[in-house]
């Protein structure tokens, strides 16, 4: 058994470095980007001239539809539609690209709600104080509200990130040779399903544990300002 583990482990780790990790990082970056944009669109209060108002309403309609669609359908089905289905419409994507797009869209839909909640949880007093200095809406958002929202959003977003690491194993079903695919391939030769799947599970666990440590570090970094004496103010 040790012999199997010794030969299989490097191969699975290599697949992790080549596919699982890049797939996770790219998809998460894309997902956060989509999530921030979607959250902001949902939070804007339609105002201004009728054309601008109408445009905002249409964008909000799209945002709500997008979040609804990706939260109401299984990730595996989304992956199949984008990789196997879209070629029928003439859109043929490489497997890796299809996976990044699907995982980004899926993560974006979930994280948009986390980000929206975090932005809303920053007290409106902070907006008042920044506005009273004469800051523009954009400055207030990026310089005052976002840094405070990040601290609130970090734990739930880390949850989504760790979830995504494991979800990338679904990419094995669209021909991507990531960690789980390699485990399957080796198992097909040595007929040791218990050992092989336990091994790959352990390697996912190691990867996620490293990320949890990273989360702890990031949390401490982003909440430096709130650590000491949080209770001191009456």
């Amino acid at each position: 058994m040790w012999e199997i583990i010794k030969t299989a482990t490097p191969q699975i780790i290599a697949a992790g470095i080549r596919y699982t990790i890049p797939l996770t990082l790219l998809s998460f970056a894309g997902g956060i980007f989509l999530g921030v944009i979607t959250a902001l669109i949902k939070l804007v209060v339609p105002s201004g001239n009728p054309v601008k108002k109408g445009l905002i309403r249409i964008l909000q309609g799209i945002a709500y539809f997008y979040v609804w669609l990706f939260r109401s359908t299984p990730l595996l089905v989304q992956l199949f539609i984008i990789f196997f289905g879209l070629p029928n419409l003439g859109i043929k994507l490489p497997a890796f690209t299809a996976a990044v797009i699907t995982f980004s869209l899926n993560t974006g839909a979930y994280s948009s709600e986390t980000i929206r909640a975090a932005l809303l949880s920053v007290p409106s007093d902070q907006w008042d104080a920044a506005y009273s200095l004469g800051m523009t809406e954009t400055s207030v958002l990026w310089r005052i509200i976002f840094p405070q929202a990040v601290r609130i959003a970090l734990p739930p977003l880390s949850n989504e990130f760790i979830g995504l690491v494991k979800d990338t194993s679904l990419a094995s079903s669209i021909t991507i040779v990531e960690m789980f695919t390699v485990a399957q391939q080796i198992e097909a030769k040595n007929y040791e399903p218990l050992v092989m799947y336990m091994l790959v599970a352990a390697l996912y666990a190691v990867l996620c544990s490293v990320l949890s440590l990273l989360q702890g570090w990031l949390e401490r970094r982003t909440s430096r300002y709130a650590q000491e004496g949080d209770e001191a103010v009456d």
């Binding site: 104080a129 840094p147 709130a226």
Partner: peptide, 29 residues
């Protein structure tokens, strides 16, 4: 913005920016 620059506001619960240092708060505007 032009009008707000003419006045300075102090709030009941001070509303300092918790993510900035004391000096950072004063320098922000």
């Amino acid at each position: 913005i032009a009008m707000r620059k003419k006045t300075g506001m102090v709030f009941q619960n001070w509303n300092l920016f918790p993510n900035l240092t004391v000096r950072g708060n004063i320098m922000e505007g």
